[in-house]
Amino acid sequence: EPREEEAEKYIKRANGDYDKAQELAKKDGNEEIAEAIKEYKKR
């Protein structure tokens, strides 16, 4: 799923820090991806 791939990219950029990844996504205006990262975190 493209959303998950995007989320993974942010998580990698944030060195595995989900909260930081979420912030990066929000900064880029990717609210949807920020949500996907939140879902990811719950797994």
Rank of each mutant, 00 (worst) to 15 (best):
E32W: 12
I11Q: 02
A21V: 01
K41S: 07
P2C: 15
K27N: 11
Y10F: 03
E4A: 11
Y40F: 10
K20E: 07
E5D: 13
E39D: 09
Q22E: 11
E8Q: 11
Q22R: 07
P2D: 14
E5H: 12
D19Q: 08
A14P: 00
R43G: 06
G29V: 01
G16P: 01
A36V: 13
Y18C: 12
L24S: 05
K42W: 05
E4P: 06
G16M: 05
Y10R: 03
N30F: 14
P2A: 14
E39H: 07
Y40Q: 10
E35W: 06
Y18P: 02
Y10I: 04
E35A: 12
E8I: 14
E31R: 07
G16L: 02
K12L: 07
A14E: 03
L24I: 05
G16N: 05
A14G: 03
E35D: 10
E39R: 10
K9L: 07
D28N: 04
K9A: 13
A36W: 15
K12G: 05
D17K: 02
Y18M: 07
E23W: 08
I11T: 01
N30T: 03
G29T: 02
K9C: 15
Q22N: 04
Q22F: 15
R43P: 04
E4V: 11
E4G: 09
Y40V: 10
D17Q: 03
E23D: 09
I33R: 01
G16K: 02
R13Y: 08
R3E: 11
R13P: 02
G16F: 10
E4R: 13
N15D: 08
N15Y: 09
Q22L: 14
G16V: 00
E23A: 10
E6N: 07
N15Q: 09
A25H: 01
A36H: 08
Q22M: 15
A7S: 05
G29Q: 05
I33P: 01
A14R: 00
K12F: 07
K38L: 12
K12Y: 06
Y18Q: 02
I33L: 10
Y18S: 02
A7V: 15
I33D: 01
A7M: 14
E6P: 05
L24A: 06
Y40D: 05
R43H: 09
E1H: 14
E35Q: 10
Y18A: 04
A25F: 00
R43K: 13
E35M: 10
G16C: 09
I11C: 03
G29C: 00
K38I: 09
E39Y: 05
E1Q: 12
E5F: 11
D28Q: 02
E23S: 08
E23T: 06
R3A: 13
E6I: 10
E31M: 14
Y10Q: 03
D28P: 00
Y40M: 15
N30E: 08
E35N: 11
N15R: 08
K27C: 10
R13V: 08
K38M: 11
E39T: 05
E39C: 08
A14V: 04
K38N: 08
G29M: 04
I37K: 01
Y18F: 11
E6T: 12
E1L: 13
A21F: 01
D19R: 05
K27S: 10
K26M: 13
K41D: 04
E31S: 09
Y40E: 07
N15M: 09
A7K: 05
K12P: 03
A14W: 00
K42S: 09
R43E: 09
E1P: 12
I33W: 03
D28T: 02
E32Q: 11
K9E: 14
K20P: 00
K41R: 10
E1R: 14
N15I: 04
I37G: 01
K12N: 10
